[in-house]
């Protein structure tokens, strides 16, 4: 059963808002469809929360988590969940998302987004955790596909099939990161078109776009470059197959001037509008 999103993102291009641009965005109020921030950076109070409250007065905000560990096999961190719930209550975000990954085992947390085998066992496990999170937040969670540098030969289904089952069984939404999907096609031989065909169109609520870098023949999801031609092309394909959705430009390392991000967002916006014209 799909939980209602209290507000929803406009079907426009937005940017990932990071610390170097807080002041500029608040002072200049550039035209942005919406912004997305990393949820954990605003846990607690003080300057970060105060900034986000101000941003929220002017833009729809999406909260994007990097620390929940939906597939970890140790218990969900209840403090983390409470912090997220409180942040949602204060900010009233237009969307809340997490990654389809794990980040903890035993007494260790690995502060990264890690891949796991797509098995029936993992599916039942992640379904119950998403149920719990949606219950706790009292809203729909969007789950993002992962960029991965290895896969597991004992996987019983593809990531797309896994996500499709998640959406079906929990009512969660899908955040399709087009760059992650592209990285996986190059690194792991994932069939991008088959992936897109395998996920339910109606469940897709958001797209992500970003740049990657390359190390020893492996594409790494570094978010430190402009969106590549290949990723733009895959995005256009996704727009055709799925339809227009709120689209985010992510840039997390070697962050450029705000104007550069806005230029990338304008590129995404142009494609969203082109698609609307074609569809009409």
């Amino acid at each position: 059963m799909e939980k209602p999103a209290t507000h929803s993102l406009p079907c426009a291009a937005g940017i990932g808002l990071r610390a170097p641009h807080y002041l500029e965005v608040l002072n200049e109020r550039p035209h942005l469809g919406w912004v997305e921030v990393h949820s954990e950076n605003f846990f607690g109070g003080g300057a970060p929360l105060n900034t986000l409250r101000q941003v929220r007065n002017h833009y729809p905000v999406s909260l994007h988590g990097v620390g929940m560990g939906l597939a970890s096999t140790r218990a969900l961190d209840q403090t983390h969940l409470s912090d997220l719930r409180r942040l949602c209550d204060m900010i009233q975000p237009a969307a809340v998302s997490e990654h389809l990954c794990w980040n903890a085992s035993g007494g260790y947390v690995i502060n990264d987004l890690l891949p796991f085998p797509y098995t029936e066992e993992a599916l039942a496990h992640v379904v119950s955790r998403i149920d719990h999170v949606q219950e706790r937040l009292d809203r729909q969670l969007l789950v993002e596909n992962l960029s991965s540098y290895l896969s597991f030969s004992h996987s019983e289904m593809t990531e797309g099939e896994f996500m499709s089952e998640l959406a079906d069984r929990t009512g969660c939404g899908i955040l399709l990161d087009v760059e992650n999907l592209y990285v996986n096609t190059c690194n792991l031989g994932v069939d991008a078109k088959a992936f897109i065909a395998s996920i339910p169109v109606d469940a897709v609520k958001e797209f992500h776009l970003a740049g990657y870098s390359e190390r020893n023949g492996c594409l790494v999801d570094t978010h430190d470059h402009p969106v590549s031609t290949e990723v733009w092309r895959l995005y256009e394909y996704a727009l055709l197959q799925i339809g227009p959705r709120p689209t985010l430009i992510e840039w997390d390392s070697d962050i450029p001037a705000l104007g550069v991000l806005m230029g990338e967002a304008a590129e995404a916006q142009r494609r969203l509008e082109q698609h609307d014209v074609q569809a009409a």
């Binding site: 690995i110 502060n111 085998p117 540098y149 290895l150 792991l188 492996c218």
Partner: peptide
């Protein structure tokens, strides 16, 4: 743990994860 990567050595992938862990 049947981890595989078709296009480069498995150590390349593992090193990225190890470096991310320590770097973060």
């Amino acid at each position: 743990t049947t981890a595989v990567c078709p296009n480069y050595r498995i150590e390349t992938a593992l090193d990225i994860y190890r470096n991310n862990y320590r770097g973060n």
